[in-house]
Amino acid sequence: MYWSFDLTPTQGVVDHLAATVILALSATPLRLVQQKDSQPRMSESQQPQASQRFQVHLFVTCLADLFRPSIAFNSIALLEEAGCDVTVPMSQTCCGQPGYNTGDYEATVPLAKQFIATFEGADYVVAPSGSCAGMITHHYPRILEGQWHERALDLAARTFELTQFLSEVAGLKRPIEQRSDVGSVTYHDSCAGLRELGIQTQPRHLLNTLCRADLKEMERTDVCCGFGGTFCAKMPELSANMASDKLEMAQASGATTLAGGDLGCLMNLAGRAKREGIEIEVRHIAELLAGDLATPAIGESSQS
């Protein structure tokens, strides 16, 4: 039901760049951390006063920038609801994960420095992606030395994934307006968010409190969906096998929506679902939390 086409040579050049970016981005680097107590820990006294709003710089992440801007717009809406002043540094590009995960540390270092220089003026850096936030908190310090290492550690302490920030720092609790009914949702724990940042309860807690979602857990939510950044293109058959397993478990949960916090995983799952003819809406959690169901789900037609 999808169409095939061939690009003209001029389009090809553009597309090659886009494809390079597309395929390479947002892998899931990892370094094990102790699972920390990830229950939201926001006391009343920490609620932002009018005078002390959180100054947040949004790292859009390149996948959301390119393929799903609605994630970034909804992230801004949620952060503003939670009492943040949101700034989007306009010179941001990519955190450098694609090169890093293929082992090209030399190409990653300048991107890491560029990122730090761009964002270090912020009180908080928030990204709607666990793997991108993990890249900054866990991997920048690993590849940078000397003064840059110190700067990386300093920025890491102020960098959060979206749901982590909303529940642990900003304490977003009450729906400000009546959300639309998001129906039954199953949540896929993306690997980097889960294992590097300990993100597991936060998105579920928010789905419960903000949208009263009917959460239906699938089996083995902690198993990788097969995206893995460049892995999915280097070893497509293995990757697809993993995505199919994940989709099978998601379907078995009975949920109508499969949500997650990392667009790379979601594009992989949505693309595989389409290819296999599996009916399930795949969405980023920022869209559900903000009640944005008007935007077509990932991989769905934007013309009715």
């Binding site: 039901m1 095939s4 090659h16 494809a19 395929l23 293109a233 990757s239 693309g271 037609s301």
Partner: peptide, 18 residues
């Protein structure tokens, strides 16, 4: 259509998924 079943330079992706 909402997506592509084939993309040049992205055959690794589109071989198995849209």
């Amino acid at each position: 259509r909402g997506g592509f079943s084939r993309l040049p330079f992205a055959s690794g992706w589109t071989q198995e998924r849209d």
